[in-house]
Amino acid sequence: MAQKLYRKPLQKLEQQGVLQVTALVDRHASHAGSLHTFFPHAVVYEDLRRALEGGQSDLSLILSPTQLHAEQSVLALRYNNHVLCEKPMAVSVAQCDEVISAANEMGRVLAVGMIRRFFPAFAHLRELVVSGELGEIHSFSYREGKVFDWDVKTLAGFTRHPEGGSGLFFDIGPHALDYLIWLFGVPEVISYADDALVGGVEGNVVMELTSPVSPGSVQLSWDSPLRNELRVIGSAGEAVLRIDESDRLALSKSAGFKEVAIDHAYPADLHQPARQRMSPRLYTESLYCQLIQVARAIQLGEPPAVSGEEAKECVRVIESARRRARPIDMPWLDCDEQEAYQALHWTKA
């Protein structure tokens, strides 16, 4: 992840003198080695504690597999580092509390990486919802799915861990839920179903939610193409947000949909108020804005885009959903296959 997404924004921030990458940590030093080419002044470590003991860093970026997020975040905070932790912050609410406590005790910034908050169209839709331009919200449906093609380097996300943290729901789920929470408030989970057998991790998820604003549904998939969109239906209009694009949003108020011109911009420097702003069009540009926001939180005392408390709500919804888990109905299977699938579903273990 660091190599694919964070390298370019970090290089740019180094060039601008905003930060300097001082340490690269990976259990396999060879993985960090390829990144080292771009950050030759950084020291490569195979152990986070040793890197922190070096005492060179002020900010730790936790980009490791989900199961390690809480433990590594707490460790970094205890070593007096500010932390930007990739989503989700932890695999349980209890773990979230530990991280938040550590941040509070140490007086450090705890930010959670929810990159989509830095997608201009996503922010624009929120403005439409909050301003009441769509009227009273009647319903929403969120669909995100395609055949998984992320170039992952480990099996961590595909291996079931008793405490959670792997599978589709911990991968895309936090993105979807954090955004829906940002739009509509913390929802109650009405139903949750997935397709994982005992010892496996889900490749499909369907949920029904009731948010403080309206009821809605979420469908996620790692193995089937879905219409990647969030559709919000209000009394004064309907909006469709393209989930797979950072800058595509359409609005229908009477006849037909029209794409909205997106110009939402984020601070792009450390001045107060910002002298430069950016409307990102690329994933790496959104990451750049997210990193700038973390730097502003540290330097200017601004709140991070997503605090630990906010990110905890997302984990709370995930926990709540998993408690309600049942198998997805698959009427396209043979009858005996359906029976076997129901019997082998992880909830029967």
């Binding site: 595909f158 057998l197 005992v198 496996g200 790692w222």
Partner: peptide, 18 residues
Amino acid sequence: RAHRSLAGLARLGPAVSV
């Protein structure tokens, strides 16, 4: 060929060796 290919099989659990 690649780790990512396992996403579509991971739901089946340890019954499948990879």
